[in-house]
Amino acid sequence: MFKKILAIDTSMDGCSVSLLKNNFIVNKFKLCKKKHTETILPMIAKILNTCCIKINELNAIACSKGPGNFTGIRLAICIAQAMALQKKIPLIGVSTFASMAEQAWRKYATKKVLIAFDAKKNGIYWAKYIRNNNGTWMGENTEICLKMEHVNTKINKLSGSWTTVGNGWEKINFKNTKKINLISTKIIFSHAKDIITFVNLLLKKNNILIFKNIVPIY
C-alpha cells in the first residue's frame, strides 16, 4: 500500500505540494509565477518537516508532467526524479489536465470536463476528460495544441453539458451551433492535492504506471 505519497506541481503560475500520510492529506499552495525555483524546494522541506516524514520513508513521489509552462514542468519533473532515484522511491507522472479534471470533480462533482489553456500565439491547449462509472478519468489521449479557429469545431462535435476549466476560455469566441451547455468555473490553476487523489484512484484500480524517467508534455 502507498500510504505516504508526496506530490509536486509547478506546471502553471502556482507552486503546490501535497503529502498523503495515513489517509490524511496536507497541502501547501503559493502563487509565484516566475519564482518557482526559489519557492518549491522550501515548500517541500516544510511539508515534510510538518508531517515528520523523511524522504526515504515515502512510498511514492508524484508530479505533474504537463501540459503547462516549459520551465515549471521541467522543474517539478527534475526534483521528483532526483528524489526518487536517490532514495529508490517509485515515481509517478500525472497529466496536469487530468489532475485539473479531478479538481473539477472535487469542487463540482462533474464527470465531463473541457480544458482550454492559453498557449499564446493564437493557440489553445485543449483536452476532453470524462469520468467513467468506476471513477477513472479518460482523456489524456485528447490533449492537443489547437489553432484558435479549430476550437469551435471541436466543441460543436459534442453534446450535453460540459464543465469548462482553464484560462483559455477568455480567448475562445465560441459560436454555439448545437446548443451544447458549457458550465463555466473559476478553475485556472492545477494543484498537487488533486494529483494525490488521482494517483490514489489509480492505485485502487491497480492501474498505475511507475516511471524511471518522466517525459514532459509542453
Score class of each variant (00 low, 15 high):
M138T: 13
W137K: 08
A84C: 14
K30P: 01
K111S: 14
N167L: 09
I172N: 00
T153F: 02
A104W: 03
K147P: 07
N59D: 15
K179A: 12
E143R: 06
L31P: 00
V199M: 12
N206G: 08
S11R: 07
I187E: 00
N23Y: 03
L58D: 05
G14A: 15
N167G: 05
T197A: 11
L209T: 13
R106C: 11
E170R: 00
I73V: 15
A119C: 08
F117G: 01
T163F: 03
F211N: 10
F174V: 06
A60G: 11
M12R: 03
A62W: 06
A82E: 11
I5D: 06
I130F: 14
G168D: 00
K205G: 00
D9N: 15
K120D: 03
W105D: 08
L20Q: 06
L203A: 13
S16K: 07
S159M: 07
K35L: 13
L209Y: 10
G14C: 09
I124T: 05
A62I: 10
V199I: 12
I77R: 09
L182M: 07
K175L: 10
C15A: 15
I44E: 10
F97C: 05
L19V: 09
N181G: 05
P216M: 15
W169M: 00
W137C: 08
L91D: 04
Y218S: 04
W105Q: 08
T177N: 11
I61S: 08
L48D: 09
F117E: 05
L20N: 08
N176G: 11
N173A: 03
I214E: 08
L6Q: 10
N134P: 01
N141M: 14
I155C: 07
K21M: 04
D194E: 14
Y108I: 02
V94M: 09
M100P: 02
A104C: 15
H36R: 10
K171Y: 05
G135M: 06
T37C: 13
L114A: 02
K65M: 14
L158V: 07
I53R: 12
K193R: 10
T153N: 14
K46N: 14
W162F: 15
A45E: 13
T197D: 05
L58W: 04
D9C: 06
L114Q: 01
Y108Q: 01
E149Y: 08
I53E: 07
T163M: 04
L209N: 12
A127I: 06
G135C: 05
R131F: 03
F211A: 03
I183L: 13
F29K: 01
I124M: 01
